[in-house]
Design a protein around this nucleic acid. Structure first.
Lengths: 242, 242, 242, 242
DNA sequence: GATGAATGAGGATTCATTCAT
DNA sequence: AATGAATGAATCCTCATTCAT
């Protein structure tokens, strides 16, 4: 009903160039990313996305179910992008502290690079009741799970307290980052990713570290080694022939 | 159907029922709180709020600039409510850990009691560019600043590390809570406020606690041992032949 | 979502005169009746209806749920109009044949007067799966049921065959009329309501009439009365004194 | 969801699978018949028809001008099918009543077999202004004209009243059947074709049968009696004294 | 002060049809 | 001949807000 309207009318059409689907899709997604970033979800117009992508509105619906789907796809690809980039570098980072700091820092960088998309994730996608069923949810899981992995490994290695909840650590980190960056996301000024990453990592690492009482203190160890060295020297001196 | 040709409403809206403005306002805010909670911002209808408040749409605009203002006012009063309630009990809580835990727990309780409003704050109000100019912002500051106060006091008292950033702690806590409760806010199941408050407080407290290494006694002991070892070495050097 | 769009924008508005709801409704229904009649359902534009009614599009939705509801309401009022008009005159018509003819003729007149609405009923409303739940259905029932009543009464009075199915008669009549008038409804030329009503009524009446074998034929009755009259006259002549 | 970023379809549409045009056409028409039947005209998608026919949308337009043309062709072939089937059996039916009943019954059967197509004819095709120019119109004429032929032959044979309008009979029958079956077409329950065919045929046949009053014998007898009565009266007048 | 009828901008979405490849 | 990507027109409906009464 109302659908067909007057379907038999003659229409003038200028057929545009026939591009490979991939190119079309990436054009649309690029344009959408821009528009969503600039305007937010509600104020983003499909017509503007279409225009910037050099496509007609209807063409968008060949590839994307609806506006929300387009947003979701854009965010998905952003996550994939981030995961890919990060994982390449991440493998080179050694040490629990360094790894945590790396993840935090990359996260801060990505927020700083894409405040618009970040806001959309924080504000729109994550609060929807269907979020958990989304691929974005899974990607975000993968994204944040790196922290969990790092923590668990360090716990297993005896570096961190055995009673540390990796999940809670993850939420502290990502929640903390988010809270720390809301002002920036509201355009209220910049932040220093490196300093923040250091502070945050220190904080969290300290919370997980094995308490001094339960492990050989470094100073103590050093003293011990020094003592032993001194002893041996003394023995040598006492009995140089030996 | 439904609307019918003629208005079958026969509304019993008290004509010119002149109530004191305060009563009017509180009726409207109560209704608005319900409707916003049940439906979220976009799906909340002014008409429904008016109906529930026993008021006409237009009357709402006598007291509130617009829909958003109404939301803001509702949230403000919620915050005031929370601050009032909490502060009464808070003064009785002794000890840094206990105080932090108290604030965290109350926060968790309030989220659990008002998931709808919480979501609106997290999702809608906080992301708006005008947020910082809002009284909600100030109230939230007051609300979260208690953590800052607690931490600073404890730092000053020498209980916590002097290099702790109280602001970062605040963001870790509130951000962490938020991340931890999103699933709940999405209606994906409940959480245990007490357990979470304990875990989170422990975590954060540990991060701020003065590390064993920095405690005077142990430092001094280690220094003593080092000095003695050094002495012995010096003796050896002075008198190699012995 | 997408609903509010940018709701806080300032809008210029010229407030139109405040008419009683009834007047508004009737204005809208009148305009709708015209537009639906002229264009059919799909090609009827709400905007055009609004314009002709001197109303803004949104106002239509104060009184009518949606476009279809508007059509339904228009048709309903048309039916009520017809039922009212007819029933006033109908009560004056005596005799089964005359009554049937009257109903048929009025029906033909109404088709001729409102071909557009007739087509909409025949084509759009009646074929919808929800039709039976509609008030239009009920009105149509009332409209066509007059035939059923007439037939049943005549059957009860012994004027028509006892085995006549009044429902089938109704369907023959209204179905027959409809088939007979489709060409007209398609704008393929006029028809003669009076002649058609007569022919159709004759046809149907004949189909229901008690067969001659089973009832005193009029000629026979006349002959009988004539015989009796002749007899009495003869007796008078034979015995004038009596 | 669903459409996904990349076309996951991997359609196995036989590329350049060059089938004889006839096969193509019949595949398309078969698919179209199904889809039109299942969904109705407006909700039938060319894309679905194409898919079911194992063809690409564009190919449909090689053989059919547009969607409506496709519907028309489908209905045409259905009519041809029906006419062919019926005429084979029809020739074996003897007697006016039996022939009418046969046509009615076959019509009822076809409605019962193809409610979807029937509805499309009743609702969509027949109401279009171009209907009369259609081949469907002609086929329908042929289809319904059998009634006209039967009636005219019976009239000519003196079996039926000479003043019967064969066209009106046709409209009563097909209109009556249609009205009687709308509930079924709306999916509101079944009907009994045989019983309905019998009732309807009886009804119509009675309407056309030569009335008893017009039979020579009874007329003559009555005339005789009248003449005799008149004679007696005349005698009285002639010889009042007697 | 209260009423509530009227405003009116605003945009996603569909799908038959075309035509370059 | 077949393909199927691209076209693009076309419209219903919502609801916060206003302001004449």
């Amino acid at each position: 009903m109302g659908k067909a309207g007057a379907p038999e009318k003659t229409r003038t059409r200028r057929h545009a160039n026939r591009l490979p689907a991939e190119k079309r899709i990436s054009d649309i997604m690029l344009a959408a990313r821009q528009v969503f970033t600039e305007r937010g979800y509600d104020d983003a117009l499909i017509s503007e996305i279409a225009e910037r992508a050099g496509v007609v509105e209807g063409s968008i619906y060949r590839f994307f179910t609806n506006k929300r789907d387009l947003l979701v796809k854009v965010v998905e690809s952003w996550y994939e992008e981030m995961l890919e980039e990060d994982s390449a570098q991440f493998s080179a980072v050694r040490g629990t502290w360094n790894q945590i700091r790396f993840v935090v820092l990359q996260h801060l960088y990505s927020i700083r690079r894409e405040p618009g998309l970040s806001r959309l994730v924080f504000q729109k996608l994550r609060s929807e009741p269907t979020y958990r069923a989304t691929r974005v949810f899974q990607l975000n899981q993968a994204y944040t799970h790196r922290i969990v992995d790092i923590v668990r490994a360090a716990v297993a290695a005896g570096e961190l307290r055995p009673d540390v909840s990796a999940g809670l650590v993850r939420d502290l980190i990502f929640g903390g980052v988010e809270h720390r960056t809301w002002a920036f996301l509201r355009n209220e000024g910049d932040f220093d990713p490196v300093a923040l990453a250091d502070d945050l990592t220190n904080m969290v690492y300290r919370a997980m570290a094995i308490p001094a009482e339960d492990r050989p203190d470094r100073l103590e160890k050093a003293a011990e080694r020094l003592e032993k060295a001194a002893e041996r020297l003394e023995r040598l001196v006492d009995d140089p022939a030996r």
